[in-house]
């Protein structure tokens, strides 16, 4: 339903000291998300995954490239004419504590967008309250309990469900969930993940899941695509289960190696990859962007630019000159 080609975004710093310094958030990214599909973007903070999510949700401009929604190229439209397209894509962001207006009850929060929707679709006013209750039930909340309450009276998990319900008021075709579970208590996180999975299965809503926690991406749908993003470039792309079970790019392998091992329950992978140095954006951009931190880099990596492609007989696309499967993921010990 949405396709992007060669998306580039550069942020220019303002102010006296840093004026003119540029941050390349996205360096020519292609993506494609099917109707009802699931896609996850993973990477470290600062890799550009949030910027890309915001561009997809229509909340951020881009310098060059093209976005096509349901067959219509956005560059051909005036900004105002793009709005109905981007309305189909709703963003759920990380912090359910600041996403809701604290001075409004949940009823008021849901009423405003639904009233607009009723007007657009020529529905009677009575539809609004019915629909609000329906949406809350859909996200697993008790409308009678939630509707009269203010956000501060709800737990983080409940608030995040309200945010999802609010996104659903405009009948979106796609939800962009940016770290939507990272501020939720561990015991409730899976509940939000399975809600997103459920919405995808029942309503056919596409889900774009943006996270640094690779494991959570599995719970949105193993059949979905995973994009591993590093410094504004996609370095590996394929099916979620392929990337997790047999990653070939050293950066993906570093990400997977960094996931804590539950000692006593799991055995660490034998070939865990640790970057040789910390991320430093100011370092040179020649060759492979990961080369400086890569334990396997050679002279070729610092002089030649690898392109994202399918090669070496692997199922996924990658941008590494020396792709190799490494055993980095912890495996469960035999049940004691």
């Amino acid at each position: 339903m949405i396709r992007g080609t060669g998306i580039v975004k550069t942020f220019k710093q303002r102010g006296s000291v840093l004026a003119g310094r540029e941050v390349k958030a996205l360096r020519g990214v292609d993506f494609s998300i099917e109707k009802g599909g699931a896609v996850s973007f993973i990477g470290e903070s600062g890799c550009g995954k949030t910027t890309l999510g915001r561009i997809i949700a229509g909340l951020e401009t881009y310098d060059s490239g093209e976005i096509v929604i349901d067959g219509t190229a956005m560059s051909a439209l005036k900004p105002r004419a793009r709005q109905p397209y981007f309305r189909r894509i709703q963003l759920i962001h990380q912090d359910p504590y600041s996403a809701l207006n604290p001075t409004r009850t949940i009823h008021q929060t849901l009423h405003a967008p639904l009233a607009l929707r009723a007007k657009q679709t020529r529905r009677p006013g009575s539809w609004i309250d019915t629909r609000a209750a329906e949406l809350l039930s859909l996200v697993g909340l008790d409308p009678g309990y939630v509707l009269p309450r203010y956000p501060h009276q709800l737990s983080g998990g409940m608030r995040q469900r309200v945010v999802i319900a609010r996104a659903l008021t405009v009948d979106p075709e796609m939800l962009v969930a940016d770290e939507a579970t990272s501020m939720i208590d561990v015991s409730l996180r899976l509940g939000i993940l399975s809600l997103l999975k459920d919405l995808r299965e029942r309503l056919g809503v596409s889900v774009l899941f943006i996270t640094h926690d690779v494991a959570t991406a599995r719970y949105i749908g193993g059949d979905g695509d995973m994009y591993v993003i590093y410094r504004g470039q996609i370095v590996e792309r394929g099916k979620v289960e392929t990337i997790i079970s047999s990653p070939v790019h050293p950066y993906t392998q570093s990400l997977l190696s960094a996931i804590p091992v539950l000692h006593g329950l799991e055995r660490p992978g034998e070939q865990r990859v640790v970057p040789t140095e910390a991320l430093d954006e100011s370092k040179s951009d020649d060759g492979c962007l990961f080369a400086r931190r890569c334990p396997f880099s050679t002279d070729r990596c610092t002089s030649e630019i690898p392109l994202l492609a399918r090669s070496g007989g692997f199922a996924q696309e990658h941008s590494c000159f020396y792709p190799e499967r490494r055993n980095v993921v912890a495996t469960p010990l035999e049940a004691a």
Binding site: L190, R218, P332
Partner: peptide, 26 residues
């Protein structure tokens, strides 16, 4: 046990993982 079962993991059956019912007390 519930907490351990609720952690998303990289391997194994994803249907085995479950959120705990209810919510933590305040």
């Amino acid at each position: 046990r519930g907490l351990l079962g609720a952690i998303p993991r990289l391997v194994g059956d994803i249907d085995e993982a479950r959120a705990l019912p209810g919510r933590p007390p305040t």
